[in-house]
Amino acid sequence: MSAQVLREDRDGLCTLTLNRPEKMNALTVQMFLELHEHVAALEQQTDTIGAVLLRGAGRCFSAGNDLRDLAAGQPLPRPHLQAHTIDRLARLPQPVIVAVHGYCYTGALELALAGDLIATAQSARFADTHAKWALTPLWGMSQRLPRRVGDARAKEMMLLGRTYSGAQAAAIGLANFCFADDEFDAEVEALARELLAGSWFSHRANKRLLLETDGLPLEAGLAHEVFRNAGKGPDMQERIAAFGKK
């Protein structure tokens, strides 16, 4: 049986690809098991992997949860496997870019929301359809979506189940970047390389600061930044010297 999540490492970038193109990358228990294994490995590879790119094979990122899996009530090998995997992905030390083309519905949107940066193609389609199927979120939608787009817009998406284009997703802050379809792959690659050009130390430290201070009052957050920051990176002197030579 072929892998449902592929991994490719190149020049510090790890690309994880959802690999059920014939099923529009519908999310299965097996897919989450494989994704969890990759995430667990990446947590220990900060010296060699500076950023992670998550995307889908074929025509779309993912059409969402596999409804046949859902209807069959397939038992999970551990409680809340999907929610735990998504949370672990969101908390990776390395920054995570999610590249969305085609469909990104419901469970797939919950997965995409684990990204630090979301890049979308113009023709992409985003939606939360939990209400269509008489379901409620279990993988983080109610928490991550309002933190990204605000409470009012999150209610709109969750209650009405409307579909949003890539351009609309960028306009409401759901996506950070919207690229033309014919330029999407090249633009995503350029974005990843731009990210990797920064200090990997700083990226990890900044991401950790944001995670650790999320929800804190301003005074407590400022104190955390001052007294619990990671300090200077091992590449600081090299970067300053290189700048001085320009």
Rank of each mutant, 00 (worst) to 15 (best):
residue 3 A to V: 13
residue 4 Q to M: 11
residue 5 V to C: 11
residue 6 L to N: 11
residue 6 L to D: 05
residue 7 R to A: 14
residue 9 D to F: 10
residue 9 D to A: 05
residue 11 D to F: 09
residue 12 G to H: 15
residue 15 T to G: 06
residue 15 T to W: 09
residue 15 T to A: 11
residue 23 K to A: 09
residue 23 K to R: 07
residue 24 M to A: 04
residue 25 N to W: 05
residue 26 A to M: 01
residue 26 A to C: 02
residue 26 A to P: 00
residue 27 L to M: 02
residue 36 H to V: 04
residue 44 Q to W: 05
residue 46 T to G: 09
residue 49 I to G: 10
residue 54 L to G: 09
residue 56 G to A: 08
residue 61 F to M: 05
residue 61 F to K: 01
residue 62 S to C: 05
residue 62 S to T: 07
residue 63 A to P: 00
residue 63 A to D: 09
residue 68 R to P: 00
residue 70 L to C: 10
residue 70 L to M: 15
residue 75 P to E: 14
residue 78 R to E: 13
residue 78 R to D: 01
residue 81 L to S: 06
residue 81 L to E: 04
residue 83 A to P: 02
residue 84 H to Y: 04
residue 84 H to P: 00
residue 86 I to T: 01
residue 87 D to L: 07
residue 90 A to S: 14
residue 90 A to Q: 12
residue 91 R to M: 03
residue 92 L to S: 08
residue 92 L to W: 08
residue 94 Q to K: 14
residue 94 Q to S: 08
residue 101 H to F: 11
residue 103 Y to H: 14
residue 104 C to M: 11
residue 104 C to Q: 13
residue 105 Y to E: 06
residue 105 Y to F: 13
residue 106 T to C: 12
residue 107 G to L: 13
residue 109 L to P: 11
residue 113 L to P: 07
residue 116 D to C: 13
residue 117 L to A: 08
residue 118 I to N: 12
residue 118 I to T: 09
residue 123 S to T: 14
residue 124 A to M: 03
residue 126 F to V: 04
residue 126 F to I: 01
residue 128 D to I: 10
residue 130 H to P: 14
residue 130 H to I: 04
residue 130 H to L: 06
residue 132 K to W: 14
residue 133 W to V: 03
residue 135 L to P: 03
residue 137 P to K: 00
residue 137 P to L: 00
residue 139 W to I: 07
residue 140 G to Y: 01
residue 141 M to A: 06
residue 144 R to S: 06
residue 150 G to A: 12
residue 153 R to A: 10
residue 154 A to W: 04
residue 154 A to K: 03
residue 155 K to L: 07
residue 157 M to D: 08
residue 157 M to H: 05
residue 158 M to L: 15
residue 158 M to E: 10
residue 159 L to K: 09
residue 161 G to I: 03
residue 161 G to Y: 04
residue 161 G to W: 07
residue 162 R to S: 08
residue 162 R to I: 15
residue 164 Y to F: 14
residue 164 Y to S: 08
residue 165 S to W: 12
residue 166 G to I: 12
residue 168 Q to G: 13
residue 169 A to N: 12
residue 169 A to H: 14
residue 171 A to C: 06
residue 173 G to W: 12
residue 174 L to G: 13
residue 174 L to A: 11
residue 176 N to V: 00
residue 178 C to V: 15
residue 178 C to S: 10
residue 180 A to L: 06
residue 182 D to T: 03
residue 184 F to I: 09
residue 186 A to S: 08
residue 186 A to E: 09
residue 186 A to W: 01
residue 187 E to T: 03
residue 190 A to W: 04
residue 191 L to Q: 08
residue 191 L to M: 13
residue 191 L to V: 02
residue 192 A to P: 05
residue 194 E to T: 11
residue 195 L to Y: 03
residue 198 G to H: 09
residue 199 S to T: 05
residue 201 F to M: 00
residue 202 S to E: 13
residue 204 R to C: 02
residue 205 A to V: 00
residue 206 N to K: 01
residue 207 K to Q: 04
residue 210 L to Q: 04
residue 210 L to W: 01
residue 215 G to S: 06
residue 216 L to K: 06
residue 218 L to D: 15
residue 218 L to C: 06
residue 220 A to W: 03
residue 224 H to A: 15
residue 226 V to Y: 10
residue 226 V to I: 15
residue 227 F to I: 02
residue 228 R to T: 10
residue 231 G to N: 12
residue 232 K to N: 13
residue 233 G to W: 15
residue 233 G to N: 15
residue 233 G to E: 14
residue 236 M to Y: 12
residue 236 M to N: 08
residue 237 Q to H: 12
residue 239 R to D: 01
residue 239 R to F: 07
residue 239 R to V: 01
residue 241 A to V: 07
residue 246 K to V: 13
